[in-house]
Amino acid sequence: MAELQFREAIRAAMTEEMERDEDIFLIGEEVAEYDGAYKVSEGMLDQFGPKRVVDTPISENGFTGLGIGAAMNGLRPIVEMMTWNFSFVAFDQILNNAAKIRYMSGGQFSFPIVFRGPNGAAGQLGATHNTSVESFYAHIPGLKVVSPSTPNDSKGLLKASIRDNDPVLFLESERMYGLKGEVSDEEDYVLPLGQAHVVREGDAVTLVANGKDYYIALEVADRLAEDGHQAEVIDPRTIRPLDFDTIIASIKKTNRCVIIDESNPFASLSSEIAFQIQERAFDYLDAPVRRITAKDVPAPYAKNLMDYYMPQADDAYQACRDVMYL
């Protein structure tokens, strides 16, 4: 096991795949000469040259569509969004082209493309730079959405995403790029998409969390353990298709669930998980499903407001105790 930063694990995944397959290239703002806005692609221009590591102007609609056309014509692009906050100027490309052309053409074309970049809040950046995009994109049939929580997962899942023949949106986090973790040094380490990870087993309550919230879930589980309760922590890893089976199996054991979701609450990932739980495990619920989300407002700037806006471990801990009737 090697200890890698999150960004290094992502870079390792891209590098290994690009060494394996000439049709893979990386395109996006500042990915080449600048070594990546968050240094994820550092050194890749030197290794692969300007044909395969391509800088773009600030032109998300253009280069996202370009990636989609290149995929349609047989290449396997990795399109970097400097952050997912900027993806909305290219929303139509992802919604109507990447996701739907295969269907509209009766399956004649496929789109082996990965869109990746940091997702969600990254501090006091104001409302435009703090959007959690999971539910926007997971809503769309034709797409897959992956959200790794650890360096190890990011490597295995990104390699799987690059190899997938359908469009995959890969959601990283600025806040996590520097995070270090053990990464498998298996020669070709690939984690399958669509499988949740039971990170910690327990029978007191099921905690579901992805991305940054995964770490909140672990903290909450530690605190509950101090109280003598073993929480089961599930990292969905893939948001679409979501591995509901694993979550439902856990609910049948714990009879209660708390979801930590950085998105704004309405019609969010947590809404869907809660819906599926009531549909598939109604008779197993001993308490209403609870969730901790970002507040139902745009992200504010002021530090105290921003802290208050984000999901808090204290709230998640209290929600767990509430559903456990403690």
Partner: peptide
């Protein structure tokens, strides 16, 4: 039109 550009890119 960006898609056409990508087809040409390929």
């Amino acid at each position: 039109i960006p898609v056409g550009t990508g087809i040409a890119f390929a």
